[in-house]
């Protein structure tokens, strides 16, 4: 009996323990910090997509735009104003949410790859605008931050920022995992399966979609903020259009059944594109091949594979035992 009562606690406790392990592993090592920042950036972008794509089946992929908005908000507040940098986080989130809602309204009749194509074109147009509007964004040179985020008068160093970033990713994954099972999440997932039926049941489907897109855009904007704070610079090239595709691949790689799959996928992407980059971007090749292989051989991602293996193991131990699923 106590086991079932403890069950809701298992997720935060286990993931929290892993988080503490990760933070101690990263420590003050500059290289590991780079890895951690990249993982959190990819992870947050993937988690952003999780809210509306994996749960709600809206393949809106303009994530390089949202991340760039979060990053440029920091850069512009740091260089153009004397405001505290923390102000830029809500500013970036609001701007990204506004853009995502406008884009969502313009594309509300589209689904599937039509939606993906239009949002991808938006990504490209936004990228072109970032380079084009050099009066606002500094053009191809981008913006170099002159100061870092300060809390209570003390400027945050890179060590603290990495820890905060990791905690942020953990928190968002946990919240999304809860959201998934909340009434909102259930409505969203039902909409993905049968949107007409859900609408008939009295759920405002357009609002539901727009809210899920806003959640994603907000998380995407945070991803850009993390990347920019850690590197103290933002330029169009640092968040290329291909990020939009990474965002789609990451959940498939890790596993779509839970936001933690996104975190695993982000770890893998970092490992493949950053750590195993033997020569001239072969990491990207390896990554693309890995995605194809996972999709063919483990359609539920690595989490699904692990679950499958443990399921078989348990089944072998107690034959005829109950099926977890």
């Amino acid at each position: 009996m106590s086991a079932t009562r403890l069950r809701p606690l298992a997720e935060p406790v286990i993931s929290g323990a892993l988080l503490i392990l990760a933070i101690t592993w990263v420590g003050t090592d500059g290289y590991r910090q780079d890895l951690a920042v990249l993982t959190v950036t990819y992870g947050l972008i993937g988690l952003g997509l999780y809210s509306h794509f994996i749960m709600g089946d809206s393949l809106s992929i303009a994530y390089n735009a949202y991340a760039a908005i979060g990053g440029y908000a920091l850069g512009l507040v740091a260089t153009r104003t004397g405001w505290p940098l923390l102000v830029s986080l809500p500013l970036g989130i609001v701007a990204a949410v506004l853009i995502s809602v406008l884009l969502g309204l313009a594309t509300r009749r589209l689904n599937g790859f039509y939606l993906a194509a239009v949002t991808l074109l938006f990504s490209e147009a936004f990228q072109a605008w970032l380079i084009d509007a050099d009066g606002v964004t500094g053009g191809a040179e981008g913006v170099i931050l002159t100061r870092s985020i300060s809390v209570f008068g003390a400027e945050l160093g890179r060590d603290q920022i990495v820890v905060i970033a990791l905690v942020l990713m953990w928190l968002i994954a946990l919240l999304l995992s809860r959201l998934r099972r909340s009434p909102f999440g259930v409505a969203l997932r039902a909409k993905a399966q049968a949107s007409v039926a859900v609408e008939a049941a009295g759920v405002p489907v357009t609002a539901l979609t727009l809210i899920s897109l806003s959640i994603g855009a907000a998380i995407g904007s945070l991803a850009g903020a993390v990347f920019t704070t850690a590197n103290l610079s933002i330029l169009p090239e640092s968040i290329p259009v291909s990020v939009a595709f990474l965002a789609v691949f990451i959940p498939f790689l890790g596993g779509r059944s839970s936001p933690w799959g996104v975190v695993i996928g982000a770890l893998l992407v970092t490992e493949l594109t950053f750590n195993l980059n033997f020569f001239q971007g072969s990491g990207t090749l390896l990554f693309a091949v890995a995605v194809v292989a996972v999709l063919i051989f483990a359609p539920e991602g690595l989490i699904g594979l692990a679950r499958d293996l443990t399921g078989r193991l348990v089944g072998a131990v107690n034959r005829g035992g109950r099926d977890e699923r």
Binding site: G112, F249, F252, S282, T284, A288, V289, V292, L295
Partner: peptide
């Protein structure tokens, strides 16, 4: 067909990189 088409998009990236290599 979604996973398969996503796999085709990944194939696109793999082909791009293979050509580059």
């Amino acid at each position: 067909e979604l996973p398969m088409v996503i796999a085709l998009v990944a194939t696109l990236f793999a082909l791009e990189q293979i050509s580059g290599v």
